[in-house]
Amino acid sequence: MIELTNVSKTFTLHNQGSAVIEVINDVSFAVAAGECVALTGASGAGKSTLMRMIYGNYLTQAGQIRIGDIDLVQAEPRQVIAVRREVLGYVSQFLRVVPRVPTLDVVAEPLRTLGVSAEMSQARAKALLGQLNIPERLWSLSPTTFSGGEQQRVNIARGFAHAYPAMLLDEPTASLDAKNREVVLSLIEEAKARGAAIIGIFHDEAARDRVCDREIDVSRFTPKVAA
């Protein structure tokens, strides 16, 4: 489902003496449907960078990143957007929303952009928010004013609104209490069960051991940077 072939990335900092930093060198791996793979490695090893490359958020200099049958490295922006809309979900660590939009609409939006009716989208959003223990009185408010943990749960609800065939999860259980952590892990298990290919970053080792089928140590692909 997700397949990386000889993927490399460098950052060129034009405004800092055109320093070229190699961050990822020659990564190849594949994630099959129904499989969950954890990216591991020390902080700064490039886990998030690699994940952002797979999402098309960071530009990949070399290699192929195939999601289904589309190579995101070569794809036109509209193809990348179509893949993100229909195939590839991403739960980042930070919630980024238009101010003043109600939480319910934030969560329902991925379904709305897929053309699902407002009623059905909202029904799904309500179910997820309920499952993730966001009090109903907050649903009509913008999540911008919520606490960190609440924002994270809204973000997860949004990420799981549509049953994406492929998903990227960046620290989905961070800053969650035990009860909500359990909800998130069961959501991940459900996604696996329906055949989603998942790549995740988990600092929470217990969580990682529970949902992940194997681990990929990203530091293996990180060139030694001469400081």
Partner: peptide, 14 residues
């Protein structure tokens, strides 16, 4: 030119 979030998060040109 490119995808909005890619250009903003990983700009290539000086």
């Amino acid at each position: 030119a490119g995808l909005t979030d890619q250009v903003l998060d990983d700009p290539q040109h000086a």
